[in-house]
Amino acid sequence: MNKLIYLLFLAFTGQQALAQDINQIITKDYADRLIKTLSSDEMQGRGTYTEGIDKAASFIESEFKAIGLMPLAGESGYRQNFTKNESDQRPLFNVAGMIPGKSKAKEIVVFSGHYDHLGIVKGNAQDSIANGADDDASGVTAMIALAKYYKALNNNERTLIFVAFTAEEIGGFGAKYFSKKLNPDDVVAMFNIEMIGKESKFGKNAAFITGFDKSDFGKILQKNLEGTEFTFHPDPYPSQNLFYRSDNATLAALGVPAHTISTDQIDKDPYYHTVKDEYSTLDTENILATIKAIAKSAISIVKGTDTPSRIPRLVEN
């Protein structure tokens, strides 16, 4: 009997080790499938209010379901439905799911990326679809892959929310609506991921964090990566004002340590906001390395052993 128990124990621990092996969970083939689908011509550039963005939302919903995420509290499904304002009642929808926390369920960690892009634009004779492979199919791919990883890990003491924002390109309306549905005091941290498809100016295995000096979020992430090749750096493009140009800005203004992680050399990216932002221009190894670095560096925040310092509020909720 004791031998049987021992063998069962070995089998269980072996399964646990496999479940926690990030290289088995977040593979190149998996990431490629996500980003290729989101940036395909079938999605028509994922323009706001288009058939293409509805297809993209449906795809993200199917991935959330396959992973086993729960809808957010108060929602019947993964879509957060809303409108821009009283004068514009056209439908908008974020796609959001969650993994409930264990001992610290009221404390929330958000992982996000925006899934909208420019849609059909004035391009050239051959192409008019702004596929948005890096901006921001790469970030949404990371967000979905992280959901898969943390669901397999099953050790999050805090509640994890994974959200694909809409309407970032036309004013950040998805993030603004999402922020209104939360008490910002309950949100411990936000990992917003945008444009990780190319090597950063710091070289391989490196990314930058916007608003690095506004909290100790970046220092916590870097501490958790000690002994690895990957490094996080402060935003090297302060003149671009990137901290306030992405979906982290709304929650950051409410005091949340909400930061964007990116690798894009935005000061000289020839594909940014053009029809040439396609899968073929991406460095898929860079995407994979960045996703895994985020997964590992966030672990103490996910487990509830680290809490980033708050950002001074700019506005009241």
Rank of each mutant, 00 (worst) to 15 (best):
K219S: 09
A252N: 04
G211L: 03
A293G: 02
N85F: 04
N155M: 11
V121R: 01
N205G: 13
L251D: 00
K36W: 03
G97M: 09
V315I: 14
E194K: 10
D269Q: 11
S40F: 09
I193F: 06
G52C: 09
A167P: 00
P184T: 09
T263F: 14
S309W: 11
D135H: 01
E51A: 14
D247M: 06
S138W: 07
G197E: 13
S280I: 03
D235W: 05
I294V: 08
G211S: 05
L7A: 14
G123Q: 08
Q24A: 06
N81V: 07
H273I: 01
H114D: 02
L160C: 08
L160V: 07
K3Y: 13
E42V: 10
L314M: 13
D88F: 06
A152Y: 01
Q44F: 10
I35H: 00
E229L: 05
D29P: 01
L10D: 10
I209G: 03
V315L: 05
D29T: 08
Y49V: 02
T305V: 08
S87N: 15
K36T: 08
G197N: 11
E63A: 00
F12D: 00
T83I: 13
Y30M: 02
D54H: 09
Y177R: 05
I261Q: 03
F212E: 01
D235E: 06
G139H: 12
T274S: 07
R33Q: 11
F111K: 14
A175N: 10
E107V: 14
Q222T: 01
F111H: 11
V95K: 02
R90H: 11
A167G: 00
R313I: 12
K84P: 04
A252H: 08
M190K: 08
L18A: 02
N317K: 15
D277W: 09
T281H: 05
L38P: 01
E86L: 15
A31H: 06
I170L: 04
Q15I: 04
G97E: 09
A56D: 12
L182E: 12
N205A: 12
K148L: 05
D116V: 03
Y279R: 05
A249I: 04
F64M: 07
